[in-house]
Amino acid sequence: MNRRDLIAAAGACAALPSMVGAARGQPVPIGEPVRASVSFRVNGAGHHLELDTRTTLLDALREHLKLTGTKKGCDHGQCGACTVLVDGQRINSCLTLAVMNQGSEVTTIEGLGSVDNLHPMQAAFVKHDGFQCGYCTPGQICSAVAVLDEIKAGIPSHVSADLEGAMAVSEAELRERMSGNICRCGAYSNIVEAMTDVAGRQG
């Protein structure tokens, strides 16, 4: 789509309200899904997928690769349950189409550690009971791992006093940075303890 098409499309959108009535009764037939191929690595393993281009990275992981550790809480980028690491950065995997991730390195909760070999953050979540129902937990843990890296890298947050200096692993920093990951069971106090524990050991 070039710039002119985009403007035309935007114009069509603006006209939409008046068209809704007219369009009723004659739904636009839709064709076969547009498919595309995409290759990326997940937890170190290479995957080549032929996907409906509407498939999100989240559904590619859950439904196609059957990596169900990544959770669908809202499918709208509102809850953080689907947080994964793409090329080391945390993202909501429901907000990115799978085909946009060509060549990416994706790390999911399954890639951080296993039942017999927990990642330090996973172990700290168990020790501090940083979860209850467990549904937001993979997203919280992926976010928590990324947050400690972000602080280490000196990336400031809304509560950072100094935008350019070194960042401290304070409770306020952790809470602010973790606020995109909702936990309805209310394990926040324990999650911050788990993260503080891990950050302390990382030094």
Partner: peptide, 21 residues
């Protein structure tokens, strides 16, 4: 005691209703 299902929940291997492929 730590939860006996804890390791499964933190590794994403506890399977919920929509995940029984």
């Amino acid at each position: 005691r730590d939860r006996i299902d804890g390791a499964r929940k933190v590794t994403g291997t506890a399977r919920y209703a929509y995940e029984h492929h």
